[in-house]
Write a protein that binds this DNA or RNA. Structure first.
Lengths: 191, 191
DNA sequence: GTCTATAAATTGATAGAC
DNA sequence: GTCTATCAATTTATAGAC
């Protein structure tokens, strides 16, 4: 048995990094060729085209995020508990698929694939906003703040982790970062 | 008196938007030509080259942010009060120069100008981190959370506003958003 | 201050040999 | 599955007329 998938995954590792560094439009097939060590023709043997590479890279982030939502469909319990659980899982996915999630957050909607990615993001963000509203309705979250703004701030804070979080090197674990984020968000920073 | 500066400012309005939408590398002079209605040659009459346009656009965001830091140099008072003041002002600058700040946050360091911009961002972020540490030392901020992480989360939350805040249209004012952000961060979301 | 014309290099993609 | 060679279109930038 050969390993064509393995080679594809390696190509995606490189492509996601390049797309993130230079932007999708700013990254040429030639860049990917240089970075992988494969000729341009060989790349076209593995994928249908440039946009196909983007799609496969984005799916690494989108799939686990949507799986998390699906898994939540039948969940019960207080909204505030489900919210904290989903945010923790979102942070875990971000840490596990850091490069792909970073790429997902950088996509702007200039191609069909990018617009698809933005739609998936919107689905996820809407879910978070619904949980915040439900948490306020339950009386567990403050009702003097705009729930829509609160939800966006929470999502923004989580997503901003891609700007600085790097795994390994005795760095903080994703769980510790999630603890800090949720503790400061829910209980506040004041001593 | 002619108005060469005015034409340059108009060009920058367009260029900042295009650079933000497609990325700096992904935006061609031809794009800018189409978007401004000027020929490519005419653009080169106004600026030295593509990277010069980026530099001028980024300065719209960098200059007021560094001015804010300069103004803080001689400030007195408790760190927590200075921190909330600086964050409020940062949000005001973000709202006032939304397009340029968005571009600043999207720059990745592929050119000399981009690396300069990243350096200015780092200067600002370091200032925030110092204020958080001082706030903990004063006993005004919780000492059970990593101040470096807290500072990054605060900066990330502020910067995430570029992802959704849009002025006008009876939308929330920057001041209201700052109120919500600071209240939730300092006092917490729990009811 | 604007334009057309053009330069040399790079773009996404394909043909076809091995 | 890899390569070299090549395509038509696009890239940043310049020359020089008006």
């Amino acid at each position: 048995m050969t390993r064509p998938r393995y080679d594809l995954e390696l190509l995606l590792d490189v492509a996601i990094e390049e797309f993130t560094k230079r932007g999708y439009d700013g990254t040429s097939i030639e860049h990917l060729s240089t970075a992988t060590g494969l000729s341009k023709s060989s790349l076209y043997h593995h994928v249908e085209g440039k946009e196909h590479i983007l799609r496969l890279g984005l799916e690494r982030a989108v799939t686990p995020l949507l799986d998390l939502l699906d898994e939540q469909e039948a969940r019960e319990g207080r909204a505030i508990d489900r919210l904290t659980y989903v945010l923790r899982r979102q942070i875990a996915i971000l840490a596990d698929q850091l490069a792909a999630v970073t790429l997902l957050l950088r996509v702007r909607g200039n191609t069909e694939t990018e617009r698809w990615a933005l739609e998936q993001r919107r689905t996820f963000d809407t879910f978070i906003a619904d949980l915040v509203r439900a948490g306020v309705a339950d009386g567990d979250l403050r009702d003097d703040l705009d729930p829509a703004v609160v939800a966006r701030l929470l999502s923004g804070t989580v997503n901003s982790l891609t700007e600085w979080y790097r795994p390994g090197h005795g760095s903080l674990s994703p769980e510790t970062i999630a603890d800090t984020m949720l503790s400061s968000s829910l209980t506040g920073l004041r001593a």
